[in-house]
């Protein structure tokens, strides 16, 4: 598993993909941060910034995850991984953790934006930390979604586009749900609505149920990815 993790991490920086992801992330996030927080001269608009950041994830995270499994399948290197003495779970986890590491590190660097705020005033530290944690966890769940969709196809393009679709849908549920006339459908969709669980974080509190929810969402999609491989062997 560690070998796969290491190779995956390296390959982000052999190809331009890793650089594009980090660069775009920091650039767009920096601009958003400036427009919503610095220019507005207030930390009240923080939630707005984090909401924009999540929207940005919908495009950027699929970029990070599209290659993970689709490319191995296309180039048949999957056969090497599947016939090596490594479990399927180990292989999938190695890939997931590699993408998560790139995402996490970029996110961490991005968090230095907030240090700027302390130079100019006394921002609400609790609000910032709660939001950072919440957004990070949502992103981690999105990485798992991208990983899962990458396991379903040989084409990176299809993986990326479908991931964008699913992630955007998960973000939009909160805004669309009120228009759905069926209560049962509403409650089912609500389960996938990541933004609903984000409310406590924007109210500056750590919500354990929400943390568990995001973690299990990530775990669910990693598990589904393992199942895809299990299932394919029997097909």
């Amino acid at each position: 598993m560690f070998a796969i993790y290491k190779r995956e991490l390296r390959s982000y920086f052999i190809t331009p993909l890793g650089y594009i992801f980090c660069g775009m992330f920091l650039l767009v996030s920096g601009i958003l941060f400036y427009r919503t927080t610095l220019a507005a001269q207030s930390t009240e608009s923080l939630s707005e910034y984090f909401l924009y950041l999540l929207m940005m994830f919908a495009v950027l995270i699929p970029l990070l995850t599209m290659r993970l499994l689709a490319d191995d399948r296309r180039s048949k290197t999957e056969q090497l991984l599947m016939t090596a003495p490594v479990s399927i779970t180990g292989m999938v986890m190695g890939k997931y953790l590699a993408a998560l590491t790139i995402y996490g590190c970029t996110f961490l660097v991005n968090a230095f934006n907030f240090v700027l705020l302390y130079l100019y005033g006394t921002p609400n530290t609790a609000a910032i930390l709660a939001n950072i944690l919440g957004v990070f966890l949502i992103g981690a769940a999105f990485v798992a979604v991208g990983l899962f969709l990458s396991s379903l196809t040989q084409s990176q393009l299809i993986a990326a586009v479908s991931s964008i679709g699913v992630i955007v849908a998960m973000l939009l549920i909160r805004f669309v749900n009120t228009y759905i006339p069926y209560a049962w459908l509403r409650s089912v969709l609500q389960w996938f609505s990541v933004l609903d669980r984000f409310v406590p974080f924007s109210n500056q509190s750590l919500s354990i149920p929400s943390i568990v929810y995001y973690a299990s969402l990530a775990a669910l999609f990693v598990f589904l990815t393992v199942r895809v491989y299990d299932k394919r062997r029997w097909a």
């Binding site: 390959s11 056969q79 003495p85």
Partner: peptide, 16 residues
């Protein structure tokens, strides 16, 4: 799997 060295029909190489 530890006992086997396998060369599939299409060599599983990472081209990069």
């Amino acid at each position: 799997k530890r006992q086997i060295g396998f060369l599939p029909e299409q060599p599983p190489l990472y081209m990069d």
